[in-house]
Simulated assay, not measured.
Amino acid sequence: MSQPAATAIIADDEEPMRDMLRKRLSEVWPELTIVAEAANGIEAIALAGKHQPDIVFLDIRMPGLSGIEAARMLFNRCHIVFITAYDQYAIEAFEQGALDYLLKPVNADRLKLACGRLQTRLGKQPNNIEKQLSQLIRQTTGKPDREYLHWVQAQVGNSLRMISTREILFFRADEKYTRVQTLQGEVLIRKTLKELAEELDPNEFWRIHRSTLVRVDAIAEVTRDLRGRQMVRVRNFPEELEVSRGNTHLFQQM
């Protein structure tokens, strides 16, 4: 029985670059199916959640959320290939083999080599590249990679529940408490939204409203209602979340 065709997403804020990469991929790896294209990191994360691709080709410099920041949310879900016009971006980190990179303009021979590497990894768990991504963030931003909150403690009845931040869809302020929404349901914690905003990774959670923090890779889409307000729809959750006027820059392409 033949294996199903590999799937991929291309994320680049320049449409001609997406077109060129799609064309060259069809030449060197015709069996690869491009299931979606994204113009920024936010779209890439949302589309990856929808399509569950084997591979994501990520431009490093994109508006809203960079390719490196997006990769940090995707690395354990698919294989990552960076695309960059800037060879100063810590190329030695890629050479370790946990992930790959392509320099713009993409060379056909180099693309063929990258695709060959990817084909040998298909069906295997993507390598843990957290340390490499941390190194890349330090080198490309000049900022130290600080330790952020990864677990939230919630009192549920007589027991203490530990909730991983990866399970959380969003936080919402509720007077002296904060509501924590996961796929399993909602719990209350005795920590303010202001405290959480300071302790959570700003690349993973965005404050879209003074009363709401949402996990970026839980965002399915952003739309406008009849009053012109931006509204966030979270995956597998029926209620839409309002984006305050002061935070519309987070979704600047809307």
Rank of each mutant, 00 (worst) to 15 (best):
A5S: 15
A6H: 04
A8F: 09
I10H: 11
D13G: 03
M17T: 13
M17C: 15
M20S: 14
L21F: 05
K23I: 07
P30V: 15
E31A: 15
I34F: 09
V35W: 01
E37N: 06
A39N: 05
A39K: 09
A39I: 08
A44Q: 11
A44Y: 08
L47M: 14
A48C: 15
H51A: 11
H51S: 08
Q52F: 12
D54Q: 10
V56S: 06
F57W: 09
D59L: 07
P63F: 09
L65A: 09
S66F: 11
E69C: 05
E69P: 03
R72M: 05
L74R: 12
I80C: 07
I80Y: 06
V81K: 14
D87C: 11
Q88C: 05
I91V: 12
I91R: 04
I91K: 01
I91P: 09
E92F: 12
Q96S: 09
Q96N: 11
L99N: 10
Y101S: 03
Y101I: 02
V106A: 08
A108I: 08
R110E: 11
K112P: 00
L113A: 10
C115T: 04
G116I: 02
Q119R: 07
Q119D: 00
R121G: 00
R121Q: 07
G123V: 04
G123T: 04
N128I: 01
E130N: 02
K131M: 01
K131P: 01
L133W: 02
S134D: 10
S134K: 06
S134N: 10
I137A: 07
R138A: 12
Q139V: 07
T140I: 08
T140K: 02
T140D: 04
P144R: 06
R146H: 09
Y148T: 15
W151K: 02
V152E: 08
Q153I: 13
Q153M: 12
Q155F: 01
V156T: 11
G157H: 15
N158M: 14
N158Y: 10
I163P: 07
S164L: 04
T165F: 11
E167D: 15
E167Y: 06
E167K: 12
F170Y: 15
A173M: 14
A173H: 10
Y177I: 03
Y177D: 08
R179I: 15
L183N: 12
Q184Y: 06
Q184M: 10
E186I: 14
L188A: 11
L188C: 13
I189G: 04
I189T: 12
K191W: 03
K194H: 09
L196R: 05
E198Y: 11
E199L: 12
L200A: 05
D201W: 08
I208W: 07
H209W: 02
S211H: 01
T212M: 00
V214M: 00
A218L: 00
I219P: 00
A220V: 02
A220E: 06
E221P: 01
T223I: 05
R227W: 04
G228R: 02
G228F: 00
R229P: 01
Q230A: 06
M231P: 00
V232D: 03
V234K: 08
R235D: 07
R235H: 11
R235K: 13
E239C: 02
E240Q: 14
V243D: 02
V243A: 01
R245F: 01
R245A: 10
T248F: 04
T248W: 01
Q252A: 05
Q253L: 13
M254N: 13
